[in-house]
Design a protein around this nucleic acid. Structure first.
Lengths: 147, 147
DNA sequence: TCCTTATTGATAATGATTATCATAATCATG
DNA sequence: CATGATTATGATAATCATTATCAATAAGGA
């Protein structure tokens, strides 16, 4: 299962003299088996379902590693803890979040992406990623409000 | 000093039966006297310069209040603690951050804003703000890298 | 297999934020 | 302008997410 991601991880590890371990395999399987937008505790729970001996610190460490290896993307939430989403073969996308019910729509907008490139050029910056979150009310919650 | 912001705060407080206090005045002055992008500790330090008796918890509470009153905007940083920036009569803007030296450029791009409106319409959402952060390398750091 | 080095899990430590609570300040009202 | 109901404060403890420490273990090249 998840042979491709495993290969990515192994290459990453070998390149810097790190080791492939049982714990790392377990966390990888747990993470990939979950939906995107998960917290470390979600991953810990899933990992312990596969191997009850996994420690919390290991999940923190391992997810950081995955982020660096390009397997996960991390984002801070205003409230609780960090969240992770799948990054391997998951195209970049932005988020549209409902401030009332919390629903999240993932989207990609070429016009936005293009305009961002123009901003980088304007200030002479080299691009290395961005984070865009649109907040608003989804159709349902908008309706409820205006009633 | 800062009569307008003070009036905003007073109206906000009165509307919900809250009280204007010396501590809130002090924190307001301290916050407005600082540059934007400040942490709670920055504000605490500035507030204690005006009144050494101010408690840390009060600053946390008060800044939350200010954010709700539209005087401050808060944003989470991936690393350390929350940061606040001025919100009253400070036009909305986005951030372009250098991942090497930490330099921050504030910008507004009409094309991006327009494209975002289109996204809201596409999904039937009502807009209530957004957060955009572009990451990259500033001209200086780009040069250093390519050497 | 052996040996060096990285990794693990448990636990303590940290740092940011929030809750608690007794005391003090605010302000609408009489 | 004194009163009283209520909110706010500051000190402290509590919580939550995350990181550091460390002795014991596992990986993997020689």
């Amino acid at each position: 299962m998840h042979r491709e991601e495993r290969a990515v991880l192994e290459r990453y590890l070998k390149e810097r003299g790190l080791k492939m371990t049982a714990a790392r395999e377990t966390v990888l399987e747990a993470f990939l088996g979950l939906e995107t937008h998960v917290t470390v505790d979600d991953i810990l729970e899933a990992a312990r379902a596969l191997d009850p001996g996994i420690g919390q610190a290991t999940v923190f460490r391992t997810m950081k590693l995955f982020a660096d290896a390009g397997l996960a993307r991390e984002a801070c939430r205003d409230d609780g803890g960090r969240q992770y989403e799948h990054a391997w073969r998951h195209a970049h996308h932005d988020h549209l979040t409902c401030v009332d019910c919390g629903k999240v729509v993932e989207f990609v907008d070429p016009a936005i992406e293009k305009a961002q490139e123009a901003v980088y050029r304007r200030y002479g910056f080299t691009s290395s990623g961005h984070r865009l979150e649109l907040f608003g009310r989804c159709p349902d919650c908008s309706k409820k409000r205006s009633r």
